[in-house]
Design a protein around this nucleic acid. Structure first.
Lengths: 252, 252
DNA sequence: CGAAGGGTTGAGGTAGATCAACAAGGGTGG
DNA sequence: CCACCCTTGTTGATCTACCTCAACCCTTCG
């Protein structure tokens, strides 16, 4: 299934799911919790750099990230890579492929990763038995769409500096919402400059120069293999971006 | 509701929906047809250039395009505009806003447009009463996601020439699938060079030069306020793109 | 200790932006 | 009817943001 990945029976019970307690996520009704518990057929742990899903293949599973970072990407024949989005705790991976057949992007772990494994074959009973969960799935897909819209605006119309500032603010905000900065965890984005470059659609050299410029202004600090955002509002101002997401969100 | 738009009671009965007959779209079950008929509360016609939905507002409706072309876009404060995707017959508009509240993009008619109007308030009963339609909605959202993924790859990693070739092939393919070329209708894409520029993330001058280059190779022909694709395969080859969508697709 | 993966920096090249004209309709008001 | 404007497309000249190439540094790891 995944290079450097280890599949096991569920270790984390849905009833004890650490995500459900976090402020940003909505809780389940009791019968929904029962269903999701049975929907979850396994747990997958993967090392940083492991490939979880591969473009062009079919997968019998979809996943929710329990802990860690991953990203979705596509590559052109000659190796040019575009990172499409990042996947954080509470996010789904593989929904597109589950609904429509073949995967059209790949997914790779950015850090050590823990995922809940679901059977795609049971999606039908999710929709028929738990309409609210069906609604949630659509909601989740619509949320992804929104993120891609904003990202598209970035690539199409923002300068390198604006783009980089936007991405930093966006990632920081999502990491915080997902609870990755909770109880004293380091507020670090585990994203290398190569990943930034491939997300921003820039060369790695120009990415480096742009990120240095932002660091020189004191908005961000570079760490070993990652960075820490010091002034999210300042970044948003540079990018001309105001995030409008708020409140609790569903997850499966 | 829409500048230059006219709202009326449904004129086209769902039972006589012209889309249902087209090869590319899946048919409804009888009870689904009944539901959709009651879900459709009106019909909207709009002139080319009319604004259908506005970023930052809430809308009580969502729409399916019956005939004509529209597009979704976002703008930055200083007026830079990015077109996110085009909306053709059978496509939904306003789903994001219906699920998540405020619209985060605008929608504008590219040609005279006819839309079915649905009440967003009845989405819940769609999911609870007709799980297959709920599934279809998720499917439709996932399809949009795929398109945006490919578009993101374009903006991030393809050259101007590759990007333009991809967009032409993509639009031509979608128009054909949506049945816009059926029974002897002109095989024209009603997209101005300004629209191309705002979709490709290029300046209008460079867009013009790039499109001329493609026209000079005989892959496309320029008409008054639009263009006609002459060699879709040739365009796909330039772009390094192979479309993998196939078979029937759902719509609401 | 050598190799490999990140990050950093300067020099020079180029794809695409910006600026500036101009042409060809179409619409509108006089 | 003409005179005017506005929109859309077209083309050349110049500029610049970003790319490529080519170093070099540091840390980690086998």
């Amino acid at each position: 299934m995944a290079k450097n990945g280890k599949l096991s029976a569920p270790r984390t019970k849905c009833s004890a799911c650490p995500l459900r307690k976090r402020e940003h996520f909505r809780d389940f009704a009791v019968d929904e919790l029962d269903f999701v518990s049975s929907f979850k057929t396994g747990e997958l742990t993967a090392d940083a750099g492991a490939t979880i899903l591969v473009e062009g293949t079919h997968s019998a599973h979809l996943f929710t990230v329990l802990d860690g970072w991953a990203f979705r990407y596509k590559i052109l024949d000659d190796g040019r890579r575009q990172i499409l989005n990042f996947i954080l705790p509470g996010d789904l991976a593989g929904l597109q492929g589950s609904l429509m057949g073949e995967m059209q992007h790949s997914v790779e772990a950015l850090t050590p990763l823990t995922l809940c494994v679901f059977e795609r074959g049971r999606l039908g009973s999710l929709f028929s038995g738990y309409p609210d969960l069906g609604f949630d799935l659509t909601w989740i897909a619509a949320r992804e769409e929104r993120i891609l819209d904003e990202h598209l605006l970035s690539l199409g119309r923002r300068s390198a500096l604006e783009r980089a500032a936007y991405l930093l603010a966006f990632l920081n905000r999502r990491a915080r919402s997902a609870g990755l900065f909770d109880n004293g965890r380091k507020k670090m984005l585990p994203v290398s400059q190569q990943h930034f470059a491939d997300t921003l659609g820039l060369s790695i050299v120009h990415t480096n120069k742009t990120l240095r410029k932002i660091a020189a202004r004191g908005l961000v600090r570079w760490l070993d293999r990652g960075c820490e955002v010091l002034d999210e509002d300042g970044l948003c101002k540079i990018a001309g971006w105001t995030d409008s997401t708020s409140g609790k969100r569903p997850f499966i």
